[in-house]
Each structure stands twice: as C-alpha cells, then as structure tokens.
Simulated scan of single mutants.
Amino acid sequence: MIALRVIARLLDYPDEALFHHQAELIEALESASEVNLRHSARLVNFIQTLFARPLLDVQAEYCELFDRGRATSLLLFEHVHGESRDRGQAMVDLLEQYRADGLELDSRELPDFLPLYLEYLANGSAERAREGLGDIVPILALLAARLQQRESPYAVLFDALLSVSGTDVAAESLQTQVEKEARDDTPAALDAVWEEEQIKFLGEQGCASAQQAAHQRRFAGAVAPQYLDVAQATTRSTGS
C-alpha cells in the first residue's frame, strides 16, 4: 500500500524534508498498483503544484485549512465524538489496536491523526488496509466534500483514499449537505468556541445516557448522526 504512505506524508504538516523528496514521492506513486491511472495522475499533479509554491505559503495554507475549526480536522475522532469523554476511551482502544499489531507510537501525535492512521494501515496487508479505510469512509467522504467546496487541492488526496477503500461512496453525494453547513473557521465561529458553556449537572437520566454512550467508541459504531446515512449506504466493492 505505497499510495497510503505517500498520501499520509502529503497530509502531514509540510516541511523542508517533504519538499526535498518530490522525485521520490512521484516515483513511488508510479509503482503503486492500488490507485488507478486517473488518481495517480491527479496525485502527481498535486505534488508538482504544491512543491512549486514557497514552503511558507504552503505551511500557512495547511494551518488555515486543517487547524482552524473542526469541519476539516484531520483528527478522526473529532468527527465522531467531538469533545465528549468517549473520545478518550476511543483513543485508548486505538492505541491498543496499534500495540496488538506490534506498533508503538514514537511521536507526540494523537493516535487518531489521519496521517498516522494511514501509516498504520500501510504497514499491514492490503485487505486490512481496505477494511481500515472502510471504517472511516463516511469521514473521508465528508472531508472530501468540504475540501471540494472550499476549492482546496487537498480534496484529490481524499478522493484517492476513497478509491483505495473499494467503496462506492463519492464526495459529490454529500455536496448538498455540505452547502447547508455553516462555516466553523470564521472569526465569529472561532470566538464562539471559547465562550464559557453553561454548567449542567447530570441526574440519573444523564448518567444512564452516559453509560449507553460508553458503548459507542469505535469508528463504524460511533459515527455521528450526520454520517449515518452515508455509512448505511456504503457498499464494499469486491474488487482489489
């Protein structure tokens, strides 16, 4: 799964090391059989266009796109659990999954950081990689649709991931939903996040609800309501 490694690197924060290996990334894609010619060509064009720009400009755009607001966050559980307490347990579960497969994190990135998750999948079999991508297809499709709406070139990376997953979910199917969303990366929206929320005390009803929510900790089983229609409509392809 060479393409997953390349896309993981392209989705990570751009640095000088990345810009020094343009030729190697393109060469790797040429031998990546898991992506078809159309997606491979689009990935190569993305690399050439990105690396033709000043690094500082690319870094600033990356931060604006992925670090402002939650809509395009690369933290997977941000789209599933938000800031709920279930997110912590989901992190623990994912770390245990990494360790069970013989991997130990040596970075300060959170385990649900998408580039890290893609690196993990790339270290296994093609079947496991497709299953792992299938678990997050609703998130990938929604991110692709949001990036397309913002006319971001990063959208092609998510289109390629959807193709590798072997599913028939396309970002275009979510365009209507995305068009109705309010942007969460505006100054007003960002200020609202920092406003102090009203303190609420849980009674017995709240505790019962919290216990029920504790069972919703993983990708497919804990997809937020807005993703359910997409998840239920996903049909896994039988092709390679």
Rank of each mutant, 00 (worst) to 15 (best):
V6I: 12
V6G: 02
I7K: 00
A8H: 02
L10K: 02
L11T: 02
E16I: 09
F19T: 08
H20P: 00
E24H: 05
L25R: 01
E27F: 03
A28I: 08
A28F: 01
E30K: 14
S33I: 11
S40L: 09
A41H: 06
A41M: 06
R42S: 11
L43H: 00
V44R: 07
T49D: 10
T49K: 01
L50V: 07
L50Q: 07
F51I: 09
E61W: 02
E64Y: 03
E64K: 10
F66T: 05
F66E: 01
F66K: 04
S73M: 06
S73Q: 03
L74T: 04
E83G: 10
R85F: 08
Q97R: 14
Q97S: 11
R99N: 06
R99I: 12
A100L: 09
A100R: 15
D101C: 11
E104C: 11
L105E: 12
L105W: 03
R108F: 04
L110T: 08
L118I: 05
G124C: 00
G124K: 02
A126T: 12
E127W: 04
E127C: 06
A129M: 05
A129Q: 06
A129C: 10
R130G: 02
E131R: 13
E131N: 14
G132F: 01
G134A: 05
G134R: 01
I136D: 07
I136G: 09
L140H: 03
L143T: 11
Q149R: 15
R150V: 15
R150P: 11
E151M: 08
A155D: 07
L157Q: 01
G166Q: 03
V169M: 09
E172N: 12
L174G: 05
E179C: 05
T186W: 04
A189S: 11
L190C: 08
A192I: 12
V193T: 13
E195R: 15
E197I: 13
I199M: 10
I199Q: 14
K200E: 10
K200P: 00
L202V: 12
G203R: 11
G203S: 09
G203K: 09
Q205P: 02
G206C: 13
C207P: 00
Q212Y: 06
H215W: 12
G221K: 14
G221V: 13
V223N: 08
P225S: 14
V230P: 06
A233D: 10
T234V: 07
T235K: 07
R236D: 03
S237T: 07
